[in-house]
Write a protein that binds this DNA or RNA. Structure first.
Length: 278
DNA sequence: AACACCGCCTGAGCGC
DNA sequence: TGCGCTCAGGCGGTGT
């Protein structure tokens, strides 16, 4: 469930704990969650041991821990979390811990992921990171109407499928796709190519506003997402459609409908997001 | 080439 | 109370 707002919330919280610190030691408890790259294997060195953290960067849902001589790319997948623990502080949940970094100030960074859809990708440096991120579309926090249109405006796919495609724009998952489509009054099954310039402007602006607002609320806690300090977010209390199938639309009070689209549960308001011709 | 679909994986929630 | 089933979905791989 961590989408862009949850990953950005984690990034913002980890910056003060990690940047400037040196990684004293690393334990990789489940080697299979780590995917080695040439020049940066899943060795302690590849996992940043002995290196000083310089910055935390993000593109879409991917988080990059940038150190002196290497970069560690982190995907949280469905259930991943990354938490900073004080010296001697025990993790809130001790199971499914896959990697633990001990920093030079005694604090620890813990990667936990019950379902293991997430993982770690050690990279040798900025060029390798740029190459990976070149496969992603623009970050959804900064997507523009023309930018979105350029990347999917000729496609026959349902607009929701396009929004979930990280090569179109990076960072949107099932929750915020439904929320942004509701906010812009667009039926999720609308073929992307049948949307006009103005629709794309409205949609891109709804995406940015929806994501920004969720970041302000610390992200959405749906199942077990917590930020890096172990705190849940509150954005889920503001969802207009996600998880509200059959409940009244917050705008028109009619029943919200549920369909399956691109293999995902999809909730929308048939009245506020009418299907259009052509 | 573009797009649909499967399978990975665990825990929550449900019906009986 | 407990069991077994379904569902949740990001993403890489495979099929059409």
């Amino acid at each position: 469930v961590p989408e862009l707002p949850e990953v950005e919330t984690i990034r913002l919280a980890l910056v003060p704990a990690l940047v400037g610190r040196r990684v004293a030691s690393v334990r990789l408890l489940r080697p299979d969650i780590c995917t080695p790259a040439p020049g940066a294997p899943c060795s302690p060195a590849g996992l940043l041991r002995g290196q000083r953290v310089r910055a935390l960067d993000r593109r879409g849902k991917q988080l990059a821990i940038i150190a002196d001589r290497g970069i560690l790319l982190v995907h949280l997948g469905m259930t991943g979390s990354l938490s900073a623990l004080g010296p001697g502080q025990a993790p809130a949940r001790p199971n499914h811990l896959h990697a633990i970094w001990t920093l030079d100030d005694g604090r620890r960074l813990v990667f936990r992921d019950p379902r293991r859809f997430g993982g770690l990708w050690p990279l040798p440096g900025p060029d390798a990171l740029a190459a990976r991120w070149a496969t992603l579309g623009p970050d959804a926090l900064r997507i523009s109407g023309p930018g979105l249109r350029a990347r999917c405006g000729a496609s026959a796919r349902p607009i929701k499928a396009a929004l979930l495609d990280q090569a179109v724009t990076a960072g949107i998952g099932n929750i915020y796709a439904d929320e942004a489509l509701f906010a812009s009054g667009i039926h999720p099954a609308t073929p992307a190519a049948s949307l006009g310039k103005v629709d794309f402007l409205r949609l891109a602006s709804a995406i940015r506003a929806t994501l920004r607002q969720a970041i302000r609320r610390g992200g959405s806690t749906i199942r077990d997402y917590v930020n890096s300090a172990g705190q849940p977010g509150t954005a889920q209390t503001r969802h207009a459609v996600y998880g509200r199938s059959g409940k009244p639309c917050l705008r028109c009070q009619r029943r919200l409908a549920a369909i399956r689209l691109a293999g995902r549960a999809t909730v929308f308001c048939p009245h506020c997001q009418p299907r259009r011709k052509s």
